[in-house]
Design a protein around this nucleic acid. Structure first.
Lengths: 227, 227, 227, 227
DNA sequence: CATGAATGAGCGTTCATTCAT
DNA sequence: CATGAATGAACGCTCATTCAT
């Protein structure tokens, strides 16, 4: 395919069913890794090219610019989130609280699996350069998610299982914020609790479970308990 | 002032009662602002010099390097935290839950007041370059705070007002993470709830109260309610 | 040409038969000229770039750093010395004293031809920064040359044409030092002997002959005459 | 005395019988040391100030500029040379060859004692920036010395103890160049001859004697032996 | 289609020097 | 008389990007 056209339309890759080549995915993955470690500005295109084992000029050739590579990374990583949430919400076999619990589980899983990417996203949110396409992407994603959760809340309230007057954003931010902080502080948590000897895999499994349970506890406090 | 000596001893500025000159504080403040907007790597020393209206060379003259300027910023902003926490903890006139609530209020106030700085700190934590002096500072602060809160927990448990088996780090991360996420999402929150017309001052006041109450609710869920 | 690979292997360029491009040679030549006039530290990379008519970044692109450009200059200029000396030494058709005379002629020719480079080398030797790769290069060259001359001495002594107990380093330093001093003082020599009107070419020819004869005289005093 | 006037007349300090204060001498000495190790351009005024333990601004205050400090160093170190040579030359109790030998001894002693300074001087000669006051100083010194030695030669020739047609500059350059090369190569000489274990003082003594004898041998070859 | 070569702009830092007191 | 503070200029180097092939 003509790379030029690709650039023109890469603002909505899913519409064109555009898939990245193996080399491109490799670049995206490397970028994700390095951005997470050294930050966007702290990572040079050369770093990425070297680490990914590709030609320096290829990155601009494929993605147009460093900024657009970041965009591609975001699109690649956030592409399937909406569908996942929609599927969950439209599953009529689940009670509202079950949906909430599944939402939490899904989110915790996704973030732990894509730890690096969520670190980048959090940082990017901090200093949201105005009119950046990535900021725009994130705002839209937030809105979509807020809408879905809002619908779920209303459903639960109609069924009498959730309290009235729950702030949907506070709810979400509690989940996102707590989880983010957990991820950030993982090394500190390990050291503080003397768990360095535990195998990484086993620790992650326990950590994931604890976080999930913890957030569910918080959600119940917000959604059910009287203030 | 002897700048050289200052460099030598700036690892413990409070011991030497060294205060920064007005110009130095101006530089630190400008750095804080720009680091928060554009990130550490995204901000050039020239940016800071221009914005602060000082000579470029001045910054290296005063702080030694860009990195050390960041350190100075951290020391300046975190210098009084320990004392504040200690004072609160040793106040025998307060019940454990009162202490917890005051801790939350203090923290929320501090973060909202120093919003920019806490954004920087969160980002810095994300990609904690190993052996960076700032990372070291943050870890020590975390440890100190964890110890203090841990003591408070034990006290409350002895008095029978707190549950057993509370994970102190989970508790703290809930507070820090939720608050951080709130701060990050403030513009989004405003827009989502159509509060753009509200005066900034009035909104902040309400926001602060809501956050504080929300976190207190969460803490009660963690500390008191049965799982 | 793969510049990266070139950097990796430029410690032994002759093994890889890597030749510098015309532009690179131009940079090396310009560097040689400016280093000789203004010294290494006195010459900025910008000076070299301007004088050579190339982009500033080009120099770092080609050579990696100012230091490595200096290394490249050394390797380029000293690359063929070893072979030249070896060839002379292994020429069985020459008597020891003939070899000595040829050695002197070769050396005088080489230094006068590469006057600028030998000025740099002498200065570099003065303040030999420890562990500098260039210092290392020079020491090795000195050792190799000392070994070769030592062999020649022993041969002459066995054949009974050279005195015993000749200090090989004193011999070499006499040649190198005297010649260096001549080169340094060339302008002064010209003026002192009122030879400014002589065409440069003609003067050089005479000067070279006089120096050569002078050093041969000194060598005979060291190698043959009784003390 | 007014520093301003001092600056105006410091091109000929001996005329005004100007002596440097202890602090100034300390600066000069430090400058000599650092210039010899790192070169003129490689040494910053800050380096000198720090090493000498004086205020940075003092150096410009005392000497006017870095360049003028270098001049002061030269004047300080070369001030007494002329007188020394003149005294030797006018000593009628010595035969020409004795004078030559004493000249050599004196020079070798002086250079070994002021090794650092002579390194600087040699380098400075290499890249004689046109119209530099230091270059001018050195040329004048060379001329004076050449005149004195020339006179000595003529005297020896008249007395029939020296050959005719001796090139006075070649003679001097042989001495200066050989000695310079020896000084430069002292560490290499030590290592090559496995003399590292010898105490520095003892080695220097032997080295000085060997050099002196060697140069005397060379001079006899030039002045007396038939070519 | 891919890439080695090239570049202008900007980086953090240090320089010799001057100024205000 | 001496010095801490300050500064414009320049340093070596790396950046994201472009271009010719």
């Amino acid at each position: 395919m003509l790379v030029l056209i690709k650039h023109l339309f890469n603002f909505a890759p899913e519409l064109f069913n555009m898939s990245y080549s193996e080399k491109q995915l490799q670049i995206i993955e490397t970028a994700e890794k390095l951005f997470a470690i050294k930050g966007f500005d702290g990572t040079s295109v050369r770093d990425i090219a070297d680490e990914a084992g590709v030609n320096l000029a290829m990155i601009n050739y494929y993605f147009g610019s460093k900024e657009k590579l970041m965009q591609a990374l975001f699109e690649q990583r956030t592409g399937h989130v909406k569908m996942q949430v929609d599927n969950l919400m439209s599953d009529d076999s689940l009670a509202p609280m079950q949906k909430v619990e599944k939402l939490i589980d899904n989110f915790v899983d996704r973030v732990i699996e894509r730890e690096k990417f969520y670190k980048i996203m959090t940082c990017e949110q901090m200093m949201h350069k105005n009119d950046s396409p990535i900021t725009e992407l994130m705002i839209q994603m937030k809105k979509r998610n807020a809408e879905a959760v809002s619908q779920l809340l209303k459903d639960g309230q109609k069924k009498g299982v959730f309290k009235k007057n729950v702030d949907v954003l506070f709810l979400m931010m509690t989940m996102v914020g707590t989880l983010t902080q957990m991820i950030i502080s993982k090394p500190f948590y390990k050291e503080y609790n003397n768990l360095q000897s535990l195998p990484e895999e086993k620790f992650n499994q326990q950590f994931r479970k604890k976080i999930s349970d913890h957030i569910k506890l918080l959600f119940k406090a917000i959604l059910i308990h009287e203030a």
